[in-house]
Design a protein around this nucleic acid. Structure first.
Lengths: 208, 208
DNA sequence: GTGCTTTCGATACGAGTCGTAGCGTAACGG
DNA sequence: CCGTTACGCTACGACTCGTATCGAAAGCAC
């Protein structure tokens, strides 16, 4: 959202919070029915029972609106404390996949990422609203695994950050690619195989 | 392309092959300058020096056109025979990343994938034109590594296919996510770390 | 060459979307 | 009660879409 800076304007009629919620909900519904390309802001406004001008007063355009609408889907993401690193990975992968499987996430997320390649501000918005929320799970899971002694501790903070980024891109990338590009479902079996592959590596394949 | 079935019509004026090339090239140029959302077919036609009707005669719409235009970028992909699995992986990753780094691939590919989530025919087109071409590299690299004794041979063909799919999603997914979502460059160092992580796994981290 | 067939370039068209402007009304705070 | 801002509504010019139509051009069979 674009919370009117920190010192919010105290005078005048306040913006309807209900309208915000209705608009974002309507955006997701429109994404499900129409997909990204056929989604129009006029249609969203009508679904939300809101004038088109109200919509433009709060969001700069389609891109920003859809980022916010999709970002809310990732609110439910949380790291399950399963007791082992392998189980943690499987749990996060299945959660992430369940969100990506929803049609409003499928069509919206990739389209926004595509637009973000040419728009620095939008890229930053995606990072803050969606990506960072996911990456935090990697940080937490890694810390827990290190506390359990399942993973070695890296002293060099720069190297540690690079490792976290690498793991993040591998986990999130694999799930996204499987779901959206290969268009195959992320089953429990796939998550198990993935976690084992990530932990043991390609060469140490012990048939489950 | 949509080669008029196998038994091509032999009579009448043949379609200009030069126009095909000019249109695809113009599409890539427009992707670079305008990105996906601002790209219009009228503009592409003008750039290619072709009437808009000619364009619509060959492609059903923006989606199909961009798939073909982007697919050509992946023609140069090939598996370098480096002598070791790790080096092969690094080589492919760097090649793939180099293509993804081009702006016409960045903005075009993700947008098409997003549209494909709601269009079965388009999804099949993407698979045939782009995905399968990449997956072949995994198959070849795996076969070579098995011949060298670097990887175990799986007897069950179904399990082997699942493994190939898993590896493919992990490699391609990581590179795509790193490049387009995290928006960070795939350097030689990153490729090296990735290959080691994929081969040795998360637990067997030996600081390079 | 002479037809026949299909493509090509050009133009025009209705339909739909865009983002903005104007205006009167509604909802708050001092 | 009054100033300020949000809201709903309508209308607008500009643009893109995909299609239709037409005469001209290019190849192939004969």
């Amino acid at each position: 959202m674009q919370s009117r800076s920190s010192a919010a304007r105290a005078t005048g009629r306040p913006r309807s919070a209900a309208a915000d919620a209705a608009i974002l909900e309507a955006t997701r519904a429109a994404l499900v029915e129409l997909g990204w390309s056929r989604l129009t802001l006029g249609d969203v406004a009508m679904r939300a029972g809101v004038a088109k001008t109200t919509l433009y007063r709060r969001w700069a355009g389609k891109n920003e609106l859809v980022v916010d609408a999709v970002a809310e889907l990732f609110d439910e993401l949380e790291l399950p404390d399963s007791g082992s690193l392998a189980a943690d990975i499987e749990g996060v992968v299945l959660q992430f996949a369940a969100i990506l499987d929803r049609p409003e996430a499928k069509s919206g997320l990739m389209a926004v990422v595509a637009e973000a390649t040419r728009d620095e501000a939008l890229r930053e918005r995606v990072r803050a609203s969606i990506v960072d929320r996911q990456k935090r799970l990697v940080l937490e899971g890694r810390a827990r695994a290190q506390a359990r002694g399942e993973l070695p501790v890296e002293d060099d903070p720069a190297a540690a950050a690079a490792t976290v980024d690498l793991i993040f891109d591998m986990v999130a990338g694999a799930v996204v690619h499987r779901t959206l590009v290969s268009a195959e479902p992320v089953t429990e079996d796939w998550a198990r195989r993935f976690a084992q592959m990530l932990l043991q590596g390609l060469t140490n394949t012990s048939p489950a």
